[in-house]
Nucleic acid binder design. Structure first.
Lengths: 203, 203, 203, 203
DNA sequence: TATGAATGAGTCTTCATTCAT
DNA sequence: AATGAATGAAGACTCATTCAT
């Protein structure tokens, strides 16, 4: 009989690797990150990592999917159906701000993948982007069904909302603005977006 | 005046290196880009590149500054004082769209630097971001002075405008939307921004 | 008598391993051959192989001895006492040709060991060589006792016969000659050997 | 102006690498041989070896060609046109014996390549084999033109001569026979071959 | 000033072997 | 006895950088 490794242990190890990988990739980028160090930090042997992931590239992609799930859950929770569209979008904005702060590792690594030069990583990051947009689009549709807004092009509007939210927070972070300063903009930005939509929708 | 000719030659070589560096860094990223290939493409010897730049890192930073100048000129030209604020912001939007298309190399490399993981590069890219924002803020001030708009927080608004513009175009590109489709949004987006500002300004 | 069944099972497993080992070592050579794959092909677990053989090296040596037995049986059968010396040597030649064709795996692995660089393997392969030579020498002695041939140096002659036989077939194979073409040489080569012996024996 | 490296220096380095490579490959075989150690022994840096040879495999093949030239020169010198066919073949036999002794490194490495499992190496070693055979065939033709021998199938006879010579010496070496003992067989073996040819030729 | 040959630090990955079950 | 998950030593190869010319 083989050494019985229960699924749980295996899954726990897998997660530990992914977490350390996220940390290292976020800190150093794909190329500079060192597989051996990731293994060491995960408390396993050098070779063991290859029992869980085919190679460095696959580890990176798996990690990307792993953090994507987290992010998406956060986004969906923020856009939960209760509240007005304004409140929901504010929650979205704040959720992004929180992610960028509390999960800066995974946020950085996702942004690097999305705007970096590696096509394979970009493709994977784009999948997450599409999921974001679909979630936002769903919210807009619900809101429209309720008569809160009137929106001619849901897709484009979702893209606009996401772009503005994400980019605003990223730029603010890069510029060194405090989280509080950013949080204070939640109402302002969503208000602007909603009024912008309302107007453009009728134009 | 042989000295001058030498200066010119030297400057020309420097630019040739920077141009090739931008191309390679955009294509492969900092780590994967190969100094030898950049030298070869620039038509100089491997060692010569070190007579112009201390090391790979400095070459990257110099290249970042080099393309930043180009971009800033384009942004300033787009925001030239003639026309209404709406027209000026539309030109800004289109200028970004054109950069993302015609200068995709340098656009990519700038985005990678800004949202990548290398702090040194991020700091340099942030300088360019600050220049963008200052230029936009200046435009908003001019517009306000003319009474076109009324804006409580110029800085935040500039950031919003820039974020929305840049991120919209990037996301659209990543999602594979055509340039034309993006261009058609110019009026819509700027209109939304302006009405958003107008309203938020009074709120 | 469960003990006997166990013994049988154990021996069967051992043989299965040896057979797969011969196949892999012949295909890839000692270093490139993969213990895990041998185990897999033998239908046993990775670790189990170490219950039968101390390590990769010992497995190789055991396999070498295993195939040596087969070869030696074939050689002895070919040199069976019936027939003239010419017929017996022709059968030897054809037996080698058949081995090289039908048991090319074990033939290759033996040649690699004998002429390869690993001293331990060479020593083991040399044992087989000595057995070959002893069998041939025995045949020559029998033939001499019968008055068929007259041979001053049995050892050297046996070596000559073996060398010519083995090397001819190998070279022919390497050069891509068909089995049939090789087989047709049987009479010619043995004839030459015998006349060579006859003459040199009197000189 | 680049560092001027005269052809001579470069060629000398190349040879030094090839010589050390032959030594290491002969000692350890292709897989166990260590590129870094070869470089070190050749008195150059680890990376330098890759300026002369694309990779380990190409280094091995280049070394094979390099030693092949040496061997072929020795073979050709031995078969120089002066003397009887018997004398020429004796010189061939002795030349092989000397190579196996004095150039045992390159001899081993050639044999490993010829009878090993790596097809690429086998193909290259086979080229050398063909050259050997062509040289021997030429000698036989010359001898036939002079009326010394009469030979129906030059190619097969050349193969026989080479096989016997090479294999006899190899086996003798493997069996631990002294060089002198081998050398003493020169006359015996060639005599046998020639008489064998003469007879088989008329049959 | 310009060059490119030489260097060697650095890293992903393989695989024989061990050992807890 | 049988297993296979875990290990880590080992090595080919790349490429930024140096420096003799």
């Amino acid at each position: 009989m083989p050494k019985v490794v229960d699924e749980q242990t295996r899954e726990a190890t897998r997660r530990r690797i992914l977490r350390q990988a996220a940390s290292e990739f976020a800190r150093l980028g794909f190329d500079q990150a060192n597989i051996n160090i990731i293994a060491e930090q995960a408390g396993i042997g050098k070779g063991t990592i290859y029992l869980y992931f085919e190679n460095k590239r696959e580890l990176f992609l798996a990690m990307l999917r792993y953090i994507a799930q987290d992010h998406l859950l956060a986004i969906r929770a923020a856009l939960a159906i209760d509240g007005t569209i304004q409140q929901r979008l504010e929650r979205l904005f704040l959720a992004f701000a929180r992610l960028a702060r509390d999960e800066s590792d995974s946020f950085n690594v996702y942004m690097s993948a999305l705007y970096g030069v590696n096509r394979a990583f970009q493709a994977e990051a784009t999948k997450l982007l599409r999921d974001y947009l679909a979630t936002i689009a769903l919210t807009l549709e619900q809101s429209q069904a309720r008569g809160e807004i009137r929106c001619s092009d849901i897709e484009a509007t979702a893209l606009m909302i996401h772009s503005l939210t994400e980019s605003y927070i990223l730029s603010a972070n890069v510029l060194g603005q405090s989280e509080q300063a950013v949080a204070r903009q939640a109402h302002l930005v969503t208000d602007m977006v909603l009024r912008g939509i309302a107007v453009s929708a009728t134009s």
